[in-house]
């Protein structure tokens, strides 16, 4: 469903993403792990067409994002980092706008908005201005925006960042519920999340993939049998064995 080939992003002299390749199929939830600044967000921005790659390609549903950005964007639901949303709009107004730009009209639009509000449990705040909502509700509003058109591919940049434990649980449950019929990428630096929702995980460090496998496999390759130690080993070491794991 989604394939990334040798993706590179340079910002001037800095190479933020140095040749990342992976693929995600239907029914998979790929955990995208890495320390802050490892290149997770940049990679996601390239897949969603927000930033053009310096080289390499991202294919979604067979469409190259560089050549057919609109076709790719139609297939993707995207929850950017920090869940941005127009603060002066109401939850319903915002979701209606998203439905509008996504080409939904009339009844299809009304029902898509209703379903998204229901799924994200936003009924109580639907007429409230987004600027007045708490962080958790804002996050869910942006989440609702991402799933509004029932996309085949869902890309989420730190969907549980800044939420309290209950809210984290809710968001994870929502991701799990949807995972069967979608290809999902979730970036996080919370390792417990990998076990909770991911079918596979990639660890990225300094713009390169340093590990790729099922959570159980990753744990097996850890010196202590714990994900946390593998993560530390791979992302703290600047050279040596960390680099040999690449690919």
């Amino acid at each position: 469903m989604l394939e990334v080939r040798d993706l590179v992003k340079r910002f001037g002299p800095i190479e933020a993403v140095k040749g990342v390749s992976f693929s995600v199929g239907m029914g998979e939830v790929l955990g995208f792990l890495g320390p802050n600044g490892a290149g997770k967000t940049t990679t996601m921005r390239m897949i969603t067409g927000f930033l053009p790659p310096s080289s390499g390609a991202a294919l979604v549903g067979g469409h190259d994002v560089a050549r057919e950005p609109v076709a790719v964007k139609r297939l993707i639901g995207y929850l950017p980092e920090n869940a941005p949303a127009y603060h002066s709009m109401t939850v319903t107004g915002f979701l209606q706008f998203i439905a509008d730009v996504r080409g939904l009209r009339g009844k299809a639009k009304a029902s898509a908005v209703d379903i998204a509000i229901q799924k994200c449990r936003l009924e109580t705040v639907r007429q409230q201005t987004i600027g007045t909502l708490s962080k958790g509700y804002r996050q869910r509003t942006c989440f609702a925006q991402a799933i509004l058109h029932n996309p085949q591919v869902l890309i989420m940049d730190e969907p549980t960042d800044g939420l309290d434990p209950n809210q984290k649980h809710t968001v994870r449950q929502m991701i799990k519920d949807m995972s069967a019929e979608k290809a999902i990428i979730v970036s996080t630096h919370i390792l417990e999340e990998v076990d909770a929702i991911c079918t596979r995980a990639i660890i990225i460090s300094q713009g390169k993939i340093v590990a790729n496998g099922k959570p159980a496999e990753l744990r097996a390759s850890s010196p202590t049998g714990r994900l946390e130690d593998l993560f530390r080993k791979l992302t703290l070491v600047e050279s040596g064995d960390a680099r040999t794991k690449e690919g």
Partner: peptide, 12 residues
Amino acid sequence: TGTIELLLTMPV
């Protein structure tokens, strides 16, 4: 506010 990231990842 970062909403540009939403807007420009819409099919527009």
